[in-house]
Amino acid sequence: MAKPYCILASFDSPAALIQAAEKTRDAGYKHFDCYSPFPIHGMDAAMGLKRSPLGLIAAGGAFGGLATAALMQWWMSAVDYPLVLSGKPFFSYQAFVPIAFELTILGAALAAVFGMFALNQMPQYHHPVFESDKLLKTSSDNGFVLAIESSDPAFSTDGVEQFMKDLGAAQIEHVAQEEEGEHV
């Protein structure tokens, strides 16, 4: 039997999936994921995941927006097209605050969203785990699904299947490796 891409196991509740994730983490598996219809509180710790670096990315976006606004307003009002308006100085920074604030927000928001896309590898319209016929789809409805991938060094088909049975999985599904040339 060919090695599958991954093996999926479904559980009945968020609590059961958290327990399964803790045991999977403790058993030394690294390439695994927990699919659920909503984010489960405490799952990051249960899976042993580090904090997302997205905060730093958004901060970078915020500073980028701020710098853009400051440079743009300074260059346009004081360098390229200096014009006396209401007797104010060319670089009247107090009046530049609102736009600087708005562009800081815009930079942070864009960085947060597109940074999240990058970290999550989105958009990505094909992924081997989508080959699952049965269990994965339930995870956007009411399913709580653990996936252990065959790329994990500790992976063996029989070993993982037995491990999942011991975890109390309700259902188990093998997701086949894609055949060559099947990529769209």
């Binding site: 994730a21 994921d33 927990c34 699919y35 659920s36 219809p37 984010p39 489960i40 799952m43 990051d44 899976m47 995941l49 997302s52 997205l54 940074g115 999240m116 970290l119 999550n120 590898q121 989105m122 958009p123 990505q124 319209y125 094909h126 992924h127 785990v129 989508f130 994965l136 995870s139 956007s140 996936a147």
Partner: peptide, 11 residues
């Protein structure tokens, strides 16, 4: 291409 795994939910 949303998958709904916790590795995505985290971010």
């Amino acid at each position: 291409g949303w998958k709904g795994g916790n590795r995505q939910w985290k971010h």
